[in-house]
């Protein structure tokens, strides 16, 4: 459905600012009907990639094909297949829900009975059916997001692009939105590409792509990605991580030690050994340890491993 080939994007600099390369020859393929999450730390290039896919920007070089159409040579044909949900709201808040949706219909050339039936279909799943005559500015964040999604479904897109669509939603609204998205994806066999850095969202994805500094670092199913980290991870929080890290390395011979902020991680520990290791650590260094845990690797841990970036913003500290 999407074929990205050797995509390179360099932002023009100015007299005082050097040009900045946001994407380094990125290639990525998304199959028909797949749900792919695009993840990466801030500045990884995912927003640049999204803006290029949505047609708001042209890359320096490389090609993108959507449904077989070249996005830059036949933009109208490619765009007709796509629905885009932007991170910042693209609704006119002075207009009612119904007016917003009708306006979107006009953009895609829908009118009359066809528009009515499509509207019914696009809104069927939503909670805004009783609020159609209300102005968008009176809706809650969660409901406004639903309108945003409904608006995109109007043209029956085969590909749905979403840019961090759950930003600013409370946990319940976020859950509802994602469940709806998963259901629509399954029912309509839509291809979905969504950027996100919330890892619980990525667990449902078919594949997860992890970007950093404009490079694709990993692109695989959540299961395979977790396997990168091997079996289990021991996470230690400490008030004096530096001292503890050198102690652990010197005294206990632990080599695979990684540090992110005040957190130390021992990755790829065999399940049979993890409990014993934890007990030994506690016996010897109890006073230096604030908390310690054994974890099954989650996508968040994979992200940390692959990008060296803690989602809370802590860079990996070189030992």
């Amino acid at each position: 459905m999407i074929e990205i080939d050797q995509l390179q994007h360099v932002y023009p600099g100015s007299r005082h600012i050097a040009p900045r390369t946001a994407l380094h020859g990125l290639s990525l393929k998304v199959d028909e009907g797949e749900l792919v999450i695009l993840s990466g730390p801030n500045g990884s290039g995912k927003s640049t990639l999204f803006r290029i896919l949505a047609g708001l920007m042209r890359p320096s070089s490389g090609t993108v094909r959507v449904g077989g159409f070249d996005l830059f040579k036949e933009p109208a044909k490619a765009r007709a297949l796509m629905g885009v949900v932007f991170q910042s709201p693209a609704l006119d808040k002075h207009l009612t829900v119904l007016e917003n949706i009708r306006l979107q219909g006009a953009l895609y050339g829908l009118s009359g009975a066809l528009l009515d039936s499509r509207m019914e279909e696009a809104l069927a799943w939503s909670d805004v059916k009783t609020r159609l005559a209300d102005k968008v500015m009176t809706l809650s964040g969660g409901l406004a997001r639903q309108v945003e999604l409904a608006k995109c479904l109007l043209a029956r897109p085969r590909l749905l692009l979403l840019d961090e669509p759950t930003t600013g939603l409370d946990p319940l609204s976020r859950r509802l939105f994602l469940d709806t998205l998963a259901r629509l994806h399954a029912e309509r066999n839509m291809t979905v590409l969504m950027t996100s850095h919330i890892f619980s969202e990525a667990e449902n994805a078919g594949r997860v792509a992890i970007l950093r500094n404009g490079h694709l670092l990993a692109y695989d199913t959540p299961g395979h990605l977790r396997a990168i980290l091997g079996s289990e991870v021991i996470v230690i929080r400490s008030a004096a991580p530096d001292a503890l890290a050198s102690l652990l390395e010197a005294e206990m011979g632990i080599a695979k030690l990684k540090r992110y902020g005040d957190e130390l991680r021992i990755e790829d520990v065999a399940p049979s050994k993890s409990l014993a290791l934890l007990e030994r650590l506690l016996e010897r260094h109890r006073s230096d340890i604030v908390s310690i845990a054994i974890k099954q690797p989650e996508l968040e841990d994979v992200f940390l491993h692959v990008t060296g970036h803690h989602p809370d913003g802590n860079e990996e500290v070189a030992a």
């Binding site: 949505a54 047609g55 708001l56 044909k77 765009r79 885009v84 910042s88 979107q104």
Partner: peptide, 14 residues
Amino acid sequence: RDQGFLQSVLAAPV
């Protein structure tokens, strides 16, 4: 254009 309604107009086949 960057933060609102026109984004979806620009992304549409218009």
